[in-house]
Nucleic acid binder design. Structure first.
Lengths: 335, 335
DNA sequence: TTGTATGCGTTATCAC
DNA sequence: GTGATAACGCATACAA
C-alpha cells in the first residue's frame, strides 16, 4: 500500500481532503472523521486541534465520499411538473425548509406533465441514491409508478384508491365555495371545471352542497387557462338563463371569467359573484380581488418532506389530507 | 482481498451493482464500465450481452461512485433568493433545459435574500463537489463572494464593476419605456422606483431618454410590493401637478398603481398610461392588461447554464447582456 | 481514546 | 478487446 500522504498534491489541488487535516493534526483520518461526525469519543484536546487545522485548511467533509460509504445520499429527489408554476414554487419552499433543518437538500427534476420524462427523471434521481423522493402531481398510475427499490411520496389528488402521501381535500373545497355563495344569497350558480380529477372532486363537493338546498348548477369545461375561463363565461352568459354566481376550478381561469364579465358590462360582485380555486398570489391582484379557495401549498410541501423523512427513518407513513380554506375578497358579496 | 462477488447480497439489496452485471455477463467490471461510458472499444457482441443483462437486472451506474472517482459530480449548484418568485421559476426552467441535454441536474438551495444563509448554501453545495454553480441575485460582494476553489456564474445586475455572468440591460429597459411613452404623446411622466441597483439603472435610462427631448420626470420610491405601488401613485396624484403616464420598476408595483388610478376614477390608458417592468405572467392578467418591459428570464437562465458549462469545460466565460423588450398591451395608448 | 484496515461503486491505467 | 487493480474520500468494525 502506498504512503497515504504520497498523493497529497493531487488532493490538495481540488480542495483539502481529510488526509491533509489528519497529517497536520498528527492524527489518523479515522479520528478526523470522528470529529466531524461528532459521534464517538474524541479527546477534547484532539478535537480542538483537528477542528483548528480543518478551519485553517477550509476543510469540509465531502458529501460524495460520505454518501458513497453510507450507500445513501443526503439528497431528496423532487419531481415537479413545472417549476415556474406559482403553486409548485410554494410547495418547493415548504419542502426546502424542512430539509434544511436536517442538512439535506433538493435534487430537482421536471416532468413537464409528461409520462416519459417523468420516468426518466425518476431514474436519473435514483442513480444519485437519493434518500427519498417526492413527486408532485404525477401523471403515472400511482400503484405502479415508483420504479422500484424505493418509496416515493406523492403530492396529488387521490387516485386509483392508493394511499400515497399528501393531498388536498378537493371536495371540501367545493363545499366551501357552494356554502359561501348560498350564504350570500346566490341561487343561479355555475361551475367551470377542467380536465383531471381535482376538478371532478371539487365539482362533486360543490354540487352536493347545492343539492342539500335543492339547487342544481350549470357547468362548463375549461382547461385552467385564462382564455378558457373567458370562453366558458361567455357561453354561460349567452344562453341567457340567468347567472348570479360562478365557481371556477382555478384562479387563472377565474381571471378570464372576470374579464368576460367586465366585457359584458356586468359588475362583480354586484351582478355576479366569483369564487376561484388555489388562492395563487395572482388572486389578490386581480380586479376585483378574487375570493378563492386556498390550497396551503407551502404547508403541503412541508408535510410531504416530513413524510419522506419519516420514511427514510424506517417509520411508516400515512396519507395526510389538507383542508382548504375560504379566503374572502372583493369578488363575492350579497347581490 | 476477499472474493469480489462475496458481498453480492449486500449489493443486491440496494439495487444491482456493476459486479452482478459483470458476473452474469461473464466479463470484468471494467468492461461493463466501458459499455456504459461507450468510450473505448468493446466488442459489439460483448456490448450486447452486457446491455442485456444490465437491463434484466435494472442496473444503472451509480452517480455516487462515478462522481467520486471523477472528483466532480454531475450536479450544478443553484442558489436562488426564493423559488416561489415567478421570474426565478422561469430562470430555473431555462437552466434545467440546458442541463438536461448534458445529463446533469440541479442541486437547489435558497438564499432568502440573506447574506448568511447564502454563504451557508454555497458551502453546502461545494461539499457536494458540484461541477458548477449559478447564483441568482446574490447579496454578496461579487468580487469576494464565491467562497473559493470554484467559479460561479452570477445572474444579477452589474455591480462593483465585476464581470460575472449574465445580466439584463436595465438602462435599455428604461429607455424603451420612455421612448414608447413619448411616442404616444405623453409628457407628464413619473417614475416609481425601488431599492437596489436594477431600479437605479432603469431610472437612468428612462430619464436620459426624457432629457433628450427636454423633459424631466417626477419620481417616487416603492419597494416592489403592490401596496407600495398604490401609495406611490396616490402621492403622485395628490400634489396635483398633472400626470399622464407612469413607468413602474416592477409589475407587482404596477398592479398597485393600476388600482390607485382606478380608485381615483382615472382611466387607463386614456387618462394615464402605465408601463411595468419584468413582464411577469401576472402582467397579462391585470385589468387592463399591463404593457411591460420584458425580461427574458428563461433565456437568461439558459445562458447562465451554458456559461457554467463552458466554465466546467475549462473555457473562458464572458458576461452576456440581455436586451429587454417592450411588450405592448392595453395599459398604454395615445391620450 | 486512537489507529489500522476494509469497503462503498465507479473510472482509469496499465498490462496482456 | 479485455482483465487486474489502484485510486477517489470517507465511515466504521476491530484491534490496540
Amino acid at each position: 500500500m502506498p504512503d497515504p500522504t504520497s498523493n497529497s498534491v493531487t488532493t490538495l489541488s481540488r480542495g483539502s481532503g481529510i488526509r491533509q487535516v489528519a497529517r497536520l493534526s498528527g492524527v489518523s483520518i479515522a479520528t478526523v472523521s470522528r470529529v466531524f461526525n461528532d459521534a464517538a469519543s474524541v479527546h477534547p484536546a484532539t478535537r480542538e486541534r483537528v477542528l483548528e487545522h480543518a478551519r485553517a485548511l477550509g476543510y469540509q467533509p465531502s458529501s460524495l465520499g460520505r454518501n458513497l460509504v453510507r450507500g445513501r445520499s443526503d439528497l431528496l429527489g423532487l419531481i415537479v411538473p413545472d417549476v415556474s408554476f406559482p403553486l409548485y414554487g410554494e410547495m418547493i419552499c415548504g419542502i426546502e425548509a424542512v430539509l434544511n433543518a436536517r442538512g439535506m437538500s433538493i435534487l430537482l427534476a421536471s416532468s413537464h406533465d409528461d409520462t416519459a420524462s417523468e420516468l426518466m427523471a425518476a431514474q436519473h434521481l435514483l442513480r444519485h441514491a437519493i434518500a427519498g423522493g417526492i413527486i408532485i402531481n404525477s401523471r403515472q398510475e400511482l400503484a405502479s409508478f415508483p420504479p422500484r427499490g424505493m418509496n416515493w411520496i406523492h403530492v396529488t389528488p387521490e387516485r386509483d384508491g392508493v394511499p400515497h402521501g399528501v393531498e388536498l381535500d378537493n371536495e371540501a373545497g367545493g363545499r366551501l365555495a357552494a356554502h359561501e355563495l348560498l350564504r350570500l344569497g346566490r341561487r343561479q350558480i355555475a361551475y367551470i371545471g377542467a380536465p383531471g380529477c381535482e376538478s371532478v372532486h371539487r365539482e362533486r363537493g360543490f354540487t352536493d352542497e347545492l343539492r342539500r338546498v335543492g339547487l342544481t348548477s350549470r357547468r362548463m369545461q375549461g382547461d385552467y387557462s385564462e382564455q378558457s375561463g373567458t370562453w366558458a363565461a361567455q357561453a354561460l352568459l349567452e344562453d341567457g338563463s340567468g347567472l348570479d354566481a360562478v365557481f371556477v376550478a382555478g384562479d387563472l381561469m377565474a381571471a378570464g371569467v372576470l374579464r368576460a364579465l367586465h366585457l359584458r358590462g356586468l359588475r362583480v360582485p354586484e351582478d355576479v359573484a366569483v369564487v376561484g380555486f388555489d388562492d395563487a398570489p395572482l388572486a389578490a391582484l386581480l380586479y376585483p380581488r378574487l375570493t378563492s379557495i386556498r390550497q396551503p401549498a407551502r404547508a403541503m410541501g412541508a408535510a410531504a418532506a416530513e413524510q419522506s423523512l419519516r420514511m427514510m427513518d424506517g417509520h411508516s407513513v400515512e396519507s395526510v389530507i389538507f383542508s382548504p380554506e375560504l379566503v374572502r375578497r372583493e369578488s363575492t358579496a350579497p347581490p
